[in-house]
């Protein structure tokens, strides 16, 4: 009901009476007032008087009701341990495709191999649950597609000089703006769900913990609405999702990557490999040409250059 109240108030510059809202929405004036009180407590600036209500300002919080077309599939919580944990739980319980778990802060934000992703307030942290009927080896394409669409969004909508470093970190002038981590479950030959978690430094100051990081606000030079950023990204992501399982996903990634053509170092727990990043294969594996001319196919490890 909050979604409907906000839609009506948001479309009018005039005050709207409780009686009119009650009549339009088919609930009592007392119920309208209760919803308005909750919205005010959540940070909405609603001017109230005996003549009715007027929406003055909305908080930059990605509440589910801020996304009328996705309302049922957005799950917002102010602070969570990790959006990945909630997403996994919901996915195992059968939540629908493109369910999104979003938080303002995470207590235990995770990076790859149990590293920490610092998740202070001011950032945007969310996990998408994807149910795509696909063999598991295609997950690289989906991840590349996601990184490419997010990079495209940051460049075109926010003017950030963002590029993707293999496989999917998004950097601006070599400093980390976004990180991604995915989880996948497979049954038989097909994927049951692929959860993609994304952390974007928006207004937070990640450099306090990670010197080599940067915020979108700093990159774009202006205030950024987190709820708008999420909305724009999800629309773009869904719009071309058909491409995500094809090699077009890899081509899109190539367009925005900063890795290919460089001399790189790939570090794993057991080994270090150096060479020229010659290309990526059809599923996203990095092809490294060593000085000897030997080509290595890399599917894990930290990439440095």
């Amino acid at each position: 009901m909050k979604k409907e109240i906000l839609q009506i108030l948001g479309q009018s510059s005039e005050r709207i009476s409780g009686e009119d809202l009650s009549s339009i929405l088919g609930i009592s004036r007392v119920s309208i007032w209760k919803h308005i009180k909750i919205l005010i407590a959540k940070g909405y600036d609603v001017d109230t008087s005996s003549k009715g209500y007027r929406l003055m300002a909305s908080p930059d919080t990605p509440f589910a009701w801020e996304y009328p077309d996705r309302c049922e599939k957005i799950h917002y919580t102010e602070t969570v341990d990790s959006t990945m944990d909630i997403a996994r739980d919901l996915a195992r319980k059968g939540c629908p495709h493109l369910t999104v778990i979003v938080a303002s802060a995470q207590r235990k934000g995770r990076g790859r191999l149990d590293r920490t992703w610092y998740s202070d307030k001011g950032g945007l942290y969310f996990t998408m649950v994807l149910r795509l009927s696909m063999p598991p080896q295609y997950m690289g394409r989906i991840n590349f597609y996601t990184a490419a669409i997010l990079t495209q969004t940051l460049r075109e909508e926010y003017g950030a000089d963002a590029k993707v470093k293999w496989p999917n970190d998004i950097l601006v002038e070599g400093r980390k703006l976004c990180g991604m981590l995915s989880e996948m479950e497979v049954e038989g030959e097909m994927t049951t769900f692929l959860n993609i978690g994304i952390g974007i430094n928006v207004h937070n100051d990640p450099a306090r913990y990670e010197p080599n990081s940067v915020s979108l606000r700093r990159c774009s030079g202006r205030k950024v609405s987190k709820k708008e950023l999420l909305s724009i990204f999800l629309d773009r992501f869904e719009d071309k999702l058909d491409l995500a399982m094809s090699e077009e996903a890899i081509n899109l990634w190539r367009k925005y990557n900063s890795t290919l053509g460089r001399y790189v170092r790939i570090v794993t727990h057991n080994d270090t490999l150096e060479g020229y990043a010659e290309g990526v294969d059809e599923n996203g594996a990095l092809l490294i040409k060593e000085d000897s001319g030997k080509i290595d196919k890399v599917i894990y490890g930290d990439c440095f250059y």
Binding site: L113, M139, G140, N143, N168, S182, V186, I299, Y300
Partner: peptide, 28 residues
């Protein structure tokens, strides 16, 4: 299993008792 920053669950196809753990962290 971790592959290209994706964590992939490996699930048992059987009911049973773990006799031994063969893989360890960082194994390729």
């Amino acid at each position: 299993i971790n592959c290209m920053k994706t964590e992939i669950s490996v699930n048992s196809e059987y009911d049973g008792i773990v006799k031994s753990v063969v893989s360890k962290e960082w194994d390729e």
